[in-house]
């Protein structure tokens, strides 16, 4: 009979890391993510603007080739709104996929709360996209300066959006430790997801057989809610945001659970 080792391990450490220190660490890591991307590049922050601006122009052109009805909303503003929201998702995920594997040296030597790494990637992305949102603000004022108390929905939608991303970012960062394939797959998956989400077309154009899929794509609800609130001043329809919230809760729950379960062995694997 071979001897089996039980997995009973108990660890007792004092002092526990303080919340304030963790906030400072998060800030430092986020700063580092931003610095990594823009140090020693001439265009600096311009790079975060380049892709959405180019895509806005491209889709404005495409729309003249193939008609995409957007009602009363000017198309450049329509697509720019979708692209700002989409940038937050795509950049955050791309950043998060390398957020743990990029800190191998640190993780092997210093004990830090590891959830801070995808969280820092997300925070850094939020700062970048904030600059993009300023540019969007200019477009908004030029094309359709409206005001509505329903704008108060924006922080709520952004909150759901960020929670969804936190779940996704931690899942992807973690998965990339076990399977480096994730790092290769992420750009392609993001591209697929981009076309599957109503960024440059309204959800009303989605063919019948794909409606169910579009409905449960959380980015559908999030992008359409942003547009509904910011471009028409209407509160988002519940059938849009309820699926988005359900998916967000599921993804965040799974992401945090797996993180909690595997955090302890990450340093042994990278």
């Amino acid at each position: 009979m071979t001897k089996r080792f039980p997995a009973d391990r108990r660890v007792n450490r004092t002092p526990a890391p303080s919340i304030r220190w963790m906030v400072e660490l998060l800030r430092t890591l986020a700063f580092h993510r931003i610095a990594l991307r823009y140090k020693e590049s001439l265009l600096g922050f311009g790079w975060i603007l380049l892709q959405p601006v180019a895509l806005t122009l491209i889709f404005t052109y495409i729309r003249r080739v193939a008609d995409i009805p957007t009602g009363d909303i000017p198309y450049p503003l329509f697509v720019a709104t979708g692209l700002v929201a989409w940038s937050l998702t795509s950049v955050a995920i791309a950043q998060a996929s390398i957020s743990i594997t990029g800190y191998t040296d640190v993780l092997k030597r210093i004990a830090i709360p590891k959830l801070l790494l995808p969280l820092a990637a997300l925070s850094a992305t939020l700062a970048d996209v904030g600059i993009l949102a300023l540019l969007w603000g200019g477009l908004f004022l030029y094309f359709q300066p409206i005001f509505s108390w329903n704008f108060l929905w924006v922080p709520v939608i952004l909150g759901v959006h960020l929670l969804l991303l936190l779940g996704l970012c931690s899942l992807i960062a973690l998965a990339n430790v076990f399977f480096r394939d994730i790092g290769h797959a992420v750009p392609h998956l993001i591209q697929l997801w981009f076309f599957a989400s109503p960024v440059f077309y309204p959800t009303s154009l989605v063919p019948k057989e794909f409606r169910l899929l579009a409905r449960w794509n959380p980015m559908t609800g999030i992008i359409e809610s942003y547009r509904s609130v910011l471009l028409t001043g209407h509160a988002p329809a519940p059938d849009l945001w309820i699926p988005a919230i359900v998916v967000t809760v599921a993804v965040l729950g799974l992401g945090l659970f797996l993180f909690w379960k595997f955090e302890g062995i990450l340093a042994d694997l990278i």
């Binding site: 039980p6 009973d8 391990r9 108990r10 660890v11 450490r13 993780l107």
Partner: peptide, 15 residues
């Protein structure tokens, strides 16, 4: 250092 966790047993570090 707490960088890695024991597979089994008891580790106590104060300070």
């Amino acid at each position: 250092a707490g960088v890695t966790q024991p597979t089994s047993g008891w580790v106590e570090v104060h300070g």
